[in-house]
Amino acid sequence: MLSLIFPGITLLLLGISFLFNKKKSVQALQKGAKRFLSLLPVFIPVIIISSLSMSYLNKDILQNTLGHNSDKLLATLSASLAGSVAVIPGFIAFPLGALLKSNGVLYMVISAFTTSLMMVGVLTFPLEQAYLQTRIAIIRNFISFLIALIVAVATGIAFGEIRTSLI
């Protein structure tokens, strides 16, 4: 149902556009199609790599890696590395986070994983590179990685997971 809202709204806007100006609307469709087709050579390898990663870096494997690390900081760091490399949609990642939580994994580690999953894209890098150029894409991902780590540490402090370890 939710997936129909977006196409619906788009088609509605397109219809309105056609009512106002037919020529401009045709132009819009042409522009959109041109962009879409020119992106495909970048897009197809990215989804192929993503699909492979989703299979090999799956829920069970992640649960094992993230769930068995006694050293807090090491666990946080490896979780953010895993999150950077993995490509997992939110509807799988967040239930996985909840599952990890119920298995006793720290909020800090879960945060490191989900935040870097959202912000850092190692496997989707070619897509980013196509728009931003290599250097800036690397810088942007690096900054995102740092922010994800800071968020994880802050989460640890907020949930009292770090202080207890320091005292």
Partner: peptide
């Protein structure tokens, strides 16, 4: 995944075309 994307992307790019115009 590509099924989802094929459903989503054409509309996304229609929207971008409309934005540009």
């Amino acid at each position: 995944f590509s099924g989802h994307m094929l459903l989503f992307l054409p509309f996304a790019f229609i929207l971008i075309g409309l934005f540009e115009v």
